[in-house]
Design a protein around this nucleic acid. Sequence first.
DNA 1: ATCTATTCCTGGCTGC
DNA 2: TGCAGCCAGGAATAGA
Length: 268
Amino acid sequence: MPELPEVETIVRELATFLRGRRIVQARVMCARISRGSGAEIEKALAGASIEAVERHGKHIVLTLDHGRLLIHLGMTGKLLFDVDDQFVRASFVLDDGRTLLFSDVRRFGRVEWSAELPERVARLGPDAATVGEAEFMERLAGRTTKIKNLLLDQNVLRGMGNIYTDEALFRAGIHPLTPANRLSRNRLRRLHGVVRDLLAEAIEHRGSSISDYVDASGARGSFQDRHRVYGRAGQPCLECRTPVERIVVAQRGTHFCPRCQKEIVIKG
DNA sequence: ATCTATTCCTGGCTGC
DNA sequence: TGCAGCCAGGAATAGA
């Protein structure tokens, strides 16, 4: 499941192949994965040249000579060159003869053409990997919302997903259910540092391959080997040997150490 | 303004 | 071996 480090890995690699290339022909084979009509996307992309490939949160943004192509990988989306599988939902033939394919088993991914960065994407929170301490504090401090929900909210911070949220909260020693306004400013500052370091480290390791994530070259990441709580329910905490617990928060499986991340008791 | 639940989607896994 | 039933969750949407 691609989150910020996985998308960053993909974007860095794609950029080397795509920058300066021209899209000869685009095809959208699955209506569900396109935002707006597939035919319009195909028309807008035909002949477009790619000037830049960048990441905006978890979105992949190709800046074209006219307009932008946005790709969101959802849960199982992949971008691969010259492979054919039964889950290819869109294809982009390039002027070097190669074809970039968007494959997505579960069709949670999206492809979109837009003249400018769409408003709902442009207004997302600051990038989780580069947000400064002051802005991080401004976004989170004083909020009554549970810290896990806040970290997952792309309007608060863009780029975090379920895996890195659980890992960050473990590293910061914060229980996922803690309302943000219960955290001291020092604890929030520590969380900021943890988030930045965690994402940088994960990018260095080319992301986490949990189920079937691979980058544009088909290579897996290795950061899953460094997860301390995600996917480790029932196994001993790597710090204190207490079994890692799994609960549901924000409708997502949430992993934490009940000893290292103390339960916050809210009195009535 | 906030927060929660539901929906989409299907391969893979569990258990009978 | 087969199959029903459940699980994974990003983000839009509806509802409280």
